[in-house]
Amino acid sequence: MPLHPEIAKALAALPAPPPGPLDPVAMRAAEEVHLPPVGPELFAVEDRTAGEVPVRVYTPSAAERHGTLVYLHGGAFFLGSVNTHDHVARSLAAATGLQVVSVGYRLAPEHPHPAGLDDCTAVVRWAAARPDWDGRTLAVAGDSSGGTYAAAVAARARDAVTHQVLYYPSLDLDFDTDRWPSRRENAVGYGLETAGLKPFNAFFLDGGADPADPEVSPLRRADLTGLPPALVVTAAHDPLRDEGEAYGERLRAAGVPTVVSRYEGAGHGFVQHFSHLPEYARVFAETAAFLAGEDS
């Protein structure tokens, strides 16, 4: 299936990137100016701190206790915020009925690895200790580099995490083009391009993150037994497609209940940028069904 026509139209309208090296500060500022529309209205949305980590808590109803989903935004470890992904967190809370905790973890290059991962782990521990957690569901979810962190946190805190949801995750940070067929197949023209993987992740890797470390490249983890059940969502036209699907297959082989769901016509980032399209809005219903233990 070709790229969805609305996605293709949006990509064609994007301006050419400015010349010269990437500027994290300028790119973050541009993101904060061009925020997506606000998502569904909820019972309460509150900015708080989990220890020293800023979080935004999305409460879907007036119930005294809720299950929890800790959400980790994407952005190649140096972009993204609770603001840029506010609509995703809102949609997850509305669809799942869970209280969503969106994490404002520390970003590269100002905060080298493992600062961001430590923040995400700390928030999961904080969520598990909250008196309004229902004691049943404590899921961790993330998109792209947030999916990297979600997979790593699911391993770090497997005693607390009940489910992991990975949206087009980056799981192998060795960016050799020939490591995965999808890096060749989807190299150009679909938004995220294979040639951009190294420069966009350089802020993270140059700060000491080792691609051979399973907390940096979760696909490198030798033993996946005992990890929480997983939903792995991939996009057909994404250079990262094959590593996500390979991780799902390895989880299954290790006895971890796993759903691997490929979205046709989609490219990397569709949950953040194109989930308003009916074909892709169902990702939230699929997530809700998975977390509820239903067939998606």
Results as ranks from 00 to 15, higher is better:
residue 9 K to H: 00
residue 66 H to V: 00
residue 170 S to M: 00
residue 16 A to S: 12
residue 189 G to S: 04
residue 79 L to N: 02
residue 198 K to C: 03
residue 172 D to R: 05
residue 56 R to S: 12
residue 245 E to R: 13
residue 123 V to W: 12
residue 91 S to E: 08
residue 31 E to V: 00
residue 85 H to A: 10
residue 138 L to Q: 05
residue 265 G to I: 09
residue 33 V to H: 13
residue 110 E to Q: 15
residue 246 A to I: 01
residue 222 A to K: 14
residue 138 L to F: 00
residue 72 L to S: 04
residue 122 A to C: 08
residue 88 V to K: 02
residue 16 A to W: 00
residue 275 S to F: 07
residue 220 R to I: 09
residue 58 Y to R: 14
residue 147 G to F: 03
residue 268 H to T: 07
residue 232 V to H: 04
residue 42 L to T: 07
residue 86 D to M: 09
residue 276 H to L: 07
residue 290 F to G: 13
residue 240 L to D: 12
residue 33 V to G: 07
residue 296 S to R: 15
residue 23 D to H: 09
residue 254 A to P: 10
residue 218 P to A: 07
residue 103 V to T: 10
residue 135 G to L: 15
residue 236 A to R: 15
residue 43 F to Q: 14
residue 240 L to P: 08
residue 30 A to I: 00
residue 259 V to Q: 04
residue 260 V to C: 11
residue 42 L to H: 01
residue 6 E to T: 12
residue 214 P to F: 10
residue 214 P to V: 04
residue 108 A to G: 10
residue 157 A to K: 12
residue 34 H to Y: 00
residue 142 G to P: 04
residue 100 V to Q: 05
residue 194 T to A: 04
residue 121 T to F: 14
residue 5 P to V: 01
residue 108 A to M: 04
residue 38 V to F: 00
residue 208 G to L: 12
residue 241 R to H: 05
residue 116 G to Q: 05
residue 286 E to Y: 12
residue 12 A to I: 00
residue 285 A to M: 09
residue 58 Y to I: 05
residue 37 P to D: 05
residue 150 A to C: 07
residue 90 R to C: 11
residue 117 L to T: 12
residue 76 A to T: 01
residue 28 R to W: 02
residue 19 P to C: 06
residue 242 D to P: 06
residue 101 V to M: 13
residue 291 L to A: 12
